[in-house]
Each structure stands twice: as C-alpha cells, then as structure tokens.
Design a protein around this nucleic acid. Sequence first.
DNA 1: ACGTGTTTATCCCGCT
DNA 2: AGCGGGATAAACACGT
Length: 237
Amino acid sequence: MFTSTNSEMIPAPAPRYPVSYQPAGYAMSSSTPGISGPYPNPISTYAANPSGVITSQIAPAFGTSLPHPTSGQFPQQLNTHVGVSSPYPAMTPNMGISPNMAIVPGAMGRASDKGNAYRRTYTHAKPPYSYISLITMALQSCPNKMMTLSEVYQWIMDLFPFYRANQQRWQNSIRHSLSFNDCFVKVPRSPDKPGKGSYWSLHPDAGNMFENGCYLRRQKRFKCEKKAAIKAAAQEA
DNA sequence: ACGTGTTTATCCCGCT
DNA sequence: AGCGGGATAAACACGT
C-alpha cells in the first residue's frame, strides 16, 4: 500500500479527503519477524494532488511508529535489534505476554517461536492510549495540525482495528473529549471550505502534554484560564 | 434525520 | 477517604 520508501510517484487510492492529506498507509507486515503488531509502520502522511497521485511524503510527526504508552519513547529508541512495528519494546521469549496483548490462533512469530501455536498481536486489544492522546496524535499527524471530527474518527479507525467496532460508543467519547478538554480548540471553517463541522486543533498553550510522560494519562489536565473565567462569570450571572 | 457539539452524571482507577 | 483524570452514557441544542 503506502509503504514505499522511495520518492517515486505512487498512484494513490481514491482520495477520501478533498484537502491534500491522506491518512497513514497500512503495513500489517506479515513478513516481519517477531512481533507483528497491527499498527501501521511507518506512520506517514502523504500529500496527494486532486487526482489522487501522491506528490510528496510528509515526515510523520510521531516518528516512524507510535510512542510507548507509558514511557513516551518510540520503538526505535527502546529497541534497535529487531524490526518491531508495535509501539512496545520487543518481547524476549521469557518476557511473557503483556496484559495489553491479545493472543490469537495462527502462529507466525519469529524463528524462536516455532512451535508456538499463537501469534502475538494487538489486533483485537484495546489500544493503550487515552482518547485524549489518540486525538492529539491524530491532530499532530496532520500537516496543518487540524482535522474535522470525521477525519479524527477515520484516522483512529485506519490505525486501530479495535475502533472499527462499537463506533457509537467511542465516537461519543471522542466528541466529549474534544468538547470537554480545553486543550482542544475549534477552528471555524474558512468560507472557501464549506462543509459540516469545524476543524479541531490543539490549544497553542497546551504544550506537548505527553512529551515526557504517559500516553494513558496526562500529568495534569490543561485548563484554559480565559475559558474558566468566562465560565465562572456566566455562572455568576 | 443526521452529524456535530455541549453538558451533566456516574463509574472506575490510581495516587496521596 | 478524598481527589483528579479518564471512560462511558445520555440528554439536549443546533445546523445542514
């Protein structure tokens, strides 16, 4: 799919987005030895012209894979000796199975796993990221750092098969997160780009909420003082 | 009608 | 136990 590393022109599938943005390519990497996580690797975005031809590759904001959910480190920082495509450090044979991993029948695994009837995979497990971090990653992956609600949904579903089910439940949570958390701000559509819903972006003062920390839980919730003051005044009246 | 956005409520969990 | 952050449910308003 979108896994080519050279710069030749690659015909893209029918663009889902009118803007010059395509979501991450998918690389299930069944040939990758060791852990074959369901997460795409690399996570890259591509600019495509209106006819759907990719014109350039945009450097991914989050490196070539997703950050480790608790250390914030990327796989290549954690592990350089195997081609790990999941956001976790590589497993060694005696590490056991992490609680976040699902075990599915149909072994592949690395050579040392031969005889093991199971393949380690995250495919059906809930990704270990909070909705806030998922939204943040989605927004940061986009060249202009803003997305519509439906683009956020699509980004999450493209990357995490888990979220292709029970959409009503988690999408409600996404809307709640966007609206409730001051770190996300609505950006009105420009008149030349009519459509449904606003764009969402990260509050400029929110900083990098997950930079050195945990992708499950922020150290502290970002609160916009101005917004709080307006809210307090409204309740006073 | 449906998607989007806001708000309130409740539960859970980890931390102090 | 109290608190804060997050997940989920649900009611409601609004615009297309």
